[in-house]
Amino acid sequence: MAITQLSAFLENTPGTLYKAVCAISDAGVNLRALSVADTRDFGILRVIVSDVDKTIAALNEDTVITRTSVIAVRMSDKAGALKEILSVLQKAGINIEYVYAFTANAANSAYVVLRVNDIEEAEAILKENGLDTLNDEDLNTILP
């Protein structure tokens, strides 16, 4: 039940993020969540968007972009919520490659996005422990 994230390769120079965000904005796409990982030479922009195909079409012209499956887990917006999720994954020996979080309109609710080495295993474990993962359709109902 993974969700679709788009990742784009950006040069680490002034204006490249702005240019990418403009292209997404001009296509009328809403950014639901965003994270940038950076090195000295380049950055990787990771986004969850309201329309994947439109975003690819808008960025593809001069940006390398790829689809990645990531897990989004619902958590309550309170101390210790992330700890509970990570503890489950840690016990199962699952490696987290990167992580970021976003909140939604629903009160008291936050979501953590994870890329892990074994997505199926991670989802099964989370489910067994009563944790709720989202799919692309769920996102459409909770976010604009």
Binding site: V64, T66, E97, R115
Partner: peptide, 15 residues
């Protein structure tokens, strides 16, 4: 310049 299909969204892969 890398080929588009060589792109990975994990920094560790690129490094």
């Amino acid at each position: 310049e890398f080929h588009p299909e060589q792109f990975s969204d994990r920094i560790a892969d690129i490094q």
